[in-house]
């Protein structure tokens, strides 16, 4: 592996910034998120950021095309997704796994979302290993290796005041080659991630859930849910969206934006019928989608154990406790 002193990371990012639009994890006031790299960013290396990189590929609001009417004529102008090379530096394993989930949805089974595809192909990703888990972390229970970002171009580690880089793809190797003058070749030992407190046992859970649609469990756990969308909007894998339009006079644009299965309107049908009328049905759907339907369709869990929903849920209705309860249920 190749290393660079932490104090020199900005030199390296400055070089990369010439060729790519570089995003780094940063503290912004009370928040933390990926921001475009600038000299004065306050890095956030010690823990994962609150807002994942999901919106770099699947923005909360994304215009799709413009339209204009003139008498009988309709003009449509496609809005091409931004076509610029992007480099995300410091994506954690859980969030990379989340991108792998989104890839399934937006790129496979014959449905390719051009807006997502363009941005995904333009992105180079430097993963960052986790030396220490937060108390809300449970990625290992969801089959994620916190020291190895699956699908990244380069794996980075933050060790002993240095960043250690290892190429995982040809694209990654090329980047390391261009940075050679800043890097020193040495091998540092990558420690096992410390401090996991939560280890929900997923063994057999997706299969068991197949028979639990009518379980009383959902009535009980849903009671405390407020049906806000905090869990879904903070989640790196939730990907439901709604189409809408902004019309001013005779012109406007069509856009899509995140939607949440926790909202009443989400399943409201044109005739006024709502197949998920109460919070019980909505809570059930959220957890079945993550832990049963998605694994059934794509053979992978739609939860990567990042723990964000655990830290934002106003009523502490935690997916880890749901998994425990499913395990216990008769």
């Amino acid at each position: 592996m190749f290393t660079v002193q932490e104090s020199e990371i900005r030199d390296l990012l400055n070089v990369l910034n010439k060729e790519y639009k570089v995003f780094v994890p940063a503290k912004v006031g009370d928040e933390s998120k990926f921001v475009p790299y600038e000299d004065n960013v306050e890095f956030c290396w010690d823990r994962n950021v609150l807002l994942s990189v999901k919106d770099k590929f699947f923005p909360q609001t994304e215009p799709l095309y413009k339209f204009k009417t003139k008498r009988q004529n309709l003009e449509i102008e496609p809005l091409a997704p931004k076509d610029e090379p992007v480099l995300l530096f410091g994506v954690r394993s859980c969030d990379l796994q989340a991108l792998n989930c989104l890839d399934q949805v937006f790129l496979t089974k014959g449905f390719v979302d051009e807006f997502y595809r363009t941005k995904r192909e333009q992105a180079t990703i430097v993963a960052l290993g986790c030396n220490e888990a937060e108390d809300t972390c449970f990625c290992t229970a969801m089959g994620v290796d916190p020291q190895k970002g699956h699908g990244a171009d380069i794996q980075a580690h933050w060790l002993q005041g240095k960043f250690a880089l290892e190429a995982l793809t040809d694209k990654g190797q090329k980047i390391i080659d261009t940075l050679k003058s800043y890097l020193k070749e040495e091998n540092l030992e990558v420690p096992e991630t410390k401090g996991f407190q939560l280890q929900p046992d997923m063994d057999g859970v997706p299969e068991k859930l197949k028979g639990m649609f009518d379980s009383d469990l959902w009535t009980e756990v849903a009671r405390k849910c407020l049906n806000c969308g905090a869990c879904t909007y903070i989640c790196p894998t939730c990907h439901c969206f709604d189409m809408s339009q902004d019309v001013r006079g005779e012109e406007g644009f069509k856009y899509r934006c995140w939607d949440s299965c926790m909202f009443e309107e989400y399943t409201l049908m044109a005739g006024g019928h709502n197949p998920r009328p109460t919070k019980k049905e909505r809570v059930r759907n959220r957890f079945l989608h993550k832990l049963c339907y998605f694994p059934e369709r794509y053979n992978m869990l739609l939860c990567t154990g990042c723990g964000r929903c655990l830290s934002v849920c106003p009523v502490n209705l935690h997916i880890t406790s749901i998994i425990d309860k499913v395990k216990e249920a008769n």
């Binding site: 928040e31 407020l226 049906n227 806000c228 969308g229 905090a230 909007y233 903070i234 949440s260 106003p314």
Partner: peptide, 12 residues
Amino acid sequence: EKCLRCYACRNV
């Protein structure tokens, strides 16, 4: 600007 529009504030 940073509001996610999750409506947790409204629902609580």
